[in-house]
Amino acid sequence: MTIASAAPASKLLAEHDPAELDVVSLLEPVVTETGTLPRGAQGTIVMKWQGDPAYCVEFIEPFPSLVDLTRSQFEVVWTA
């Protein structure tokens, strides 16, 4: 009996089309009006629209902030 191995979770998330309420992690620091969000900061997609930047992401830590991001600036770490 052969059991097919599943794709690693990280690969599945990398191929996932980000949606509202997905949790993302920044791949690079992002400068905001309040300060700089560091690489690795995690936030939640609260709005997705067409065009670039296409995602509005809410961050709570290290300070509350709403940031417009392009797909290349983050990776999905949890899907809603």
Rank of each mutant, 00 (worst) to 15 (best):
T36G: 02
E28M: 09
V57P: 03
Q42R: 14
V46H: 01
A19H: 11
T36N: 04
A14S: 15
A14R: 14
W49Q: 12
L37A: 09
G51F: 06
A19L: 12
E15Q: 15
T32H: 08
V23K: 13
Q42N: 08
L21K: 13
E28I: 02
K48W: 00
T34A: 15
V24P: 02
M47G: 04
V57D: 09
M47A: 14
T36K: 07
T36L: 03
P18C: 11
A54S: 15
A19F: 03
E28D: 06
I45H: 06
T34F: 13
T34S: 15
E33L: 14
S25L: 05
V24F: 00
T44L: 13
P53R: 12
P29N: 06
E20M: 11
E33Q: 13
L21P: 00
E15F: 07
V30G: 01
T36P: 00
W49M: 10
H16C: 06
T44V: 15
P18D: 11
A14N: 13
L26E: 04
L13D: 06
P38H: 04
T36D: 00
L26C: 03
K48A: 14
K48F: 00
S10H: 11
Y55T: 01
G43M: 07
A41K: 07
A14H: 11
L21D: 09
G35R: 08
D17M: 06
R39L: 07
D22N: 11
P38D: 08
E15M: 14
T44N: 10
S25W: 01
E28A: 14
V57C: 09
Q50I: 04
G40R: 07
C56G: 08
T34G: 13
Y55V: 00
L27D: 03
E15N: 13
G51S: 09
A14G: 09
D17R: 10
L37I: 01
H16L: 12
E33R: 14
V23Q: 12
K48D: 00
S10D: 11
Q42A: 06
L26N: 02
E33M: 13
T34L: 14
H16P: 03
L13V: 06
R39F: 00
S25Q: 13
P38I: 00
K48N: 04
E33A: 14
E20W: 00
Y55W: 05
P29S: 08
A14P: 02
R39Q: 11
E58A: 15
E58Y: 07
E15T: 11
L12D: 08
A54C: 07
W49N: 12
L26I: 03
M47I: 01
T44I: 12
E20H: 02
M47L: 09
P38V: 00
V57H: 05
C56D: 08
A41Y: 01
D17V: 10
G35A: 08
T34Q: 15
G35L: 06
A14C: 05
E20C: 05
A54K: 10
T34K: 15
V30M: 07
E28R: 12
